[in-house]
Amino acid sequence: MNTTGWQQDLLNTWLETQKIWWEHTAQVLQTTTSLPIQVSNNPDWSKQIDQWWESAITYTPPHLQDVLNRVLSMSRSYLELAEQIYTKVHNSDAATPLEAWLVSMEQTFLTQWQQQKKSYSGGFGLAGSLFEGWHHLVNQLPGMPVMPASMRGQTANPQEWLNYWQKSLSIPNASSLAQQQTWQALLPLINNYQTSLAAFMDAMAQQNLEALQQLRARLWHMAGEGRSIRHLRALYDLWVTVSEESYARFALSDQYQVVYGDLVNAHMALRKGFGEALTQHMHTLNLPVRSDLDELYRKQHELRRENCALRRQLAQLERRLDALNTQS
């Protein structure tokens, strides 16, 4: 292909891409105007957001996907709050709908953590964000395969987890006795990580419960002063204020220091153990591993420092030479 033809092809492809993008954007805009507001005894506004987003995500430019995900995730949680309050108010058998909602939230915190259920929707999205955020982070870190989706948010059976990894890395010769033993050595590390994760999440759940109790006290204090909440958003904002105050105290406690440190340390120990097991396998296959690469980087770093020192010495000598030349 000659240069002109190649450029023309490139231009055509680019124009076609732009056209498709704008057509898709137009479809998204059409979709945005057609979201119905549904009112019933048990509305599912949050699910509507999900359905809309599933249809829109395909057409969203990549640089906007992360931020839109965050906005829509938070909107979904906010609409879940609206659904819960609406249901309590609409089904007015409860004498005080807000109290009924607070009680149901407390029960949610208690039961969801105690039973280690798969999803965690309490806390207007916050606790879910913390939990999901941790797993998202863990999956982003290098050197270990991602956690199986079915086990996210759960205290999975360590053996099940180990099996998953062994399958994921079905390396030839992986079934030798020595290598089986290497994998088995990871079991206590997995157990330790699961225990630390559960302790961290339990502590967070306890803090959220306390925040709810403080929210209740704040609301009744307001009522005693003749003030009341008249907007959902005002209720949400008050919850954020109260929770942030409660969390700030908790995060400075000895308990938080311990559960936070233990979680990070247990995860790193597991990751390190996994890396060592993987290295052993790679050695069996005569493949280079990270420690080999690190050795090269270390040498390169030493050479860079040596080079820098030599450059400085040279500059110093040049200055001395200049001074001598000036004197003579």
């Binding site: 979201l35 507001i37 009112v39 509507q48 609206a82 609406y86 709908p97 009341s228 008249r230 959902l232």
Partner: peptide, 19 residues
Amino acid sequence: MPPFQMPAEAIADEVKNFQ
């Protein structure tokens, strides 16, 4: 005075505005 005063219709309106 109860601490929360919003009829169901007002909640639905707020949701509609938000959406």
